[in-house]
Amino acid sequence: MKKILTFTFLTLFSYHLAAQDDLLDLLDAETPETENVVTATFKGTRIVNGHSVENRKNKELEFIIAHRFGAINTGIEDLFGLDISNIRFSFEYGLSDNLTAGLSRASVEKTYEGFLKYSLLKQKTGANSFPVAVSLFGSIAAKSQKAIPGFERSFVESLFYTAQVLIAKKINSSLSFQLTPTYVHRNLTAIFDDPHDIFALGIGTRVKLNKRVSLNAEYFPQFDKLKSIDATNSLAFGIDIETGGHVFQIILANSRRMVEKAFITETTGDFFGGDIHLGFNLSRTF
């Protein structure tokens, strides 16, 4: 009798140990660890004015129309800046999933710009995890506005170069950060004291307010500044609203400029002094 009891007890006990009753738990245990590439660190290819780590994917074409208005503190005469408008058109195309090429035209200084952005490293979780995403950005901007007589310049003297390393981290689904070490070179300076080379360190962030709306901020402190124009650091805030293939960005910035070399090194507005420019980016991906 004792033996039977022991037998029953031990059988039940061992059975309990060995059994995996729940099939879903079993599937969990069988799930291979997958490499998980973090996507949508930012909604758009721009945080506000500056580039984000995001690229257009292979064969996708993005068309961006951007406007920046005059400063709000110009008052009612200019309808708080709305009378004055800068515009920029940009076509950006994914040559591959990791390489985007762009061509744009901005109204200020009649600037043509071409850029390449390459996604070097992806942020990953799971197998082969990696903490940040890294992209490289390079652009050449050419000023085509006719020079004032006496200040003629050659084509080469009209060129500006920008190089950036974009380092981004998506902390969680609603919070992302980006650090953007930036180098801007101008072939021709306005005065002898102006530096040809300016380094800046961009700081950007995105906070998602809900599934389709996010709040973005961006600041570009410079380590050296143009002396000829009393330059300030670019500060901008934006709200991204995304619907299907469109991203609409409403912007408040202390700069009216949209090309890297311009808003990073040629901003003169004092944001907290009221030099705030309303603007928007409208992006459509085909």
């Binding site: 729940d22 099939l23 879903l24 079993l26 599937l27 969990d28 799930t31 997958t34 998980n36 996507t39 949508a40 994917k57 292979n58 996708e60 999933d97 689904s173 599934k211 389709r212 995304e242 299907g244 293939g245 991906t285």
Partner: peptide
């Protein structure tokens, strides 16, 4: 009995942007 487990991020779309919206939104 049967059980099925589906990882949502493993759904592949024709357009990368669709896939991003599917997962994000």
């Amino acid at each position: 009995q049967m059980a099925i487990s589906i990882l949502m991020k493993s759904f592949m779309f024709e357009k990368a942007l669709m896939q991003e919206h599917f997962n994000e939104n």
